[in-house]
Amino acid sequence: MRIAAQPVAASTPLADTALLAAALRRRTEALMAEAARLYAVDLSGWCVTLDLKGMAAGRVQLLMRRVRYNLAIAAQAPELFLSITVPHEVAHIVCHLRHGRRARPHGPEWRAICLALGGTGERCHGFGAEPARRLRRYVYACGCRRWSLTSIRVHRIRRGLIYHCRACGRALRPAAAEAAANEACR
């Protein structure tokens, strides 16, 4: 289920950035306290930053013990963000502490925790968001299909990394080079 964004009137106190930031931190702390009680996990020492950009509403960095929120998305619909995204992210932390890496990021274990914390148990938000950057894409090919790779992966390939197709096992090469190699084999 995707959740429709409901813009909040500018007069809403939460529309104020500083108030919104404080509300996000308070809500996260409150949910962490609740989660610590419900699941008997230690959630001390976590910090909340509001520096996330792009399409994601929130993100958890487990090693850094840090929850990051996207302030631009939060400002669109503060109340929805507080009730959907905050439990979503806190559930990731609890899920990791309870189940470790065995649990998939949005698998049934995470979903149960998210629902118990008052979230929707959905993977994606329905807030409007613009990507932080648009990556250029390049066409690569293996033996069986063509691939659209972002410039990030192409740069890795140019530095020496090799990506293999899981189906045919062949290395991915620029589509033009692949076509020329096929021609030479004939």
Binding site: T17, A18, A21, C47, T49, L50
Partner: peptide, 9 residues
Amino acid sequence: RSFCSTTYD
């Protein structure tokens, strides 16, 4: 000051 307190508390 606003950036520091809002974004990174």
